[in-house]
Amino acid sequence: MTYPLRADLAGDADLSALAVDREARPALSPHLKRLEAEAIHIMREVAAEFAKPVMLYSIGKDSSVMLHLARKAFFPSKPPFPLMHVDTTWKFREMISFRDETAKALDWELIVHVNEEGVARGVDPFRSGSAVHTQVMKTEGLKQALDRWGFDAAFGGARRDEEKSRAKERIFSHRTASHAWDPRNQRPELWRVFNTRIGPGESMRVFPLSNWTELDVWQYIAAEGIPVVPLYFAAERPVVKRNGALIMVDDERMPLDPGEQPELRRVRFRTLGCYPLTGAIRSDATTLDDIVAELLASKVSERQGRVIDQDEQSSMERKKREGYF
């Protein structure tokens, strides 16, 4: 994987889907240009006003865009904060290798945090259930990591169009010393004048992609030639059907029911997370253009493949109040 260092954006040999000539890429539309400038402004504001920021790297498409924007925001300096991945130990293997290659290619400090207590307790998505697994490995893991390194601001790639309760989140979202989000007590966010003040132990979650839609993200990836995990593109992959979702058998830890046999299907992923909790979609989309076309014709939402959102009514809001991103 090669990363373009600046203006000389070259095609990428390893990811055939991205091997688009620079000339062939569409220019940034005024709309994307505006979103890009807004995200850059937000990132610089954080770098200037917080003592110890960190960028949460979830390895997904939104994170890929966020990393790219951070490189733009501080150029020719390097982004003045590390990347951090809260690893649940159940991510797709391709995500982990992509993560490590990305950090290496960009020469960017990467902190990987695993909730070892959770591992010791044997928490996993099959025996513990998705709700407990997410709570312990993701939410608790994130809080542990933020506390351990004393970060006072954490960038996340969440977009407001993803989910109802996220639509009401601020760009600068205040967290109490115990990482709680109080949706009834949010600071009004006026113009682009962000109130970055926090008390001792408190922190801020910052969402530079708040105003981006899923379509914006893919169009930006195409326009800028940003590498993404190959799982987003259709390929033959071994899957089993569970509760209506196509789950990829990514390693031998996946318990199969008696008689259950993984089948090779041509699938891709619209969002990425823990492999046992992420449903694949049947697709022939092997290029970015295919993905955009598929997206425009799609009748289901992006988070539909996420098992954790459907656990219970308002599950996302509850998770967010507890400190989930």
């Binding site: 009401k168 009834r184 308002s314 809001e317 509850r318």
Partner: peptide, 13 residues
């Protein structure tokens, strides 16, 4: 979007 709003029937944010 928020739980309380669905229950109270008003938009609070």
């Amino acid at each position: 979007g928020l739980e309380q709003e669905r229950e109270q029937g008003i938009t609070i944010d």
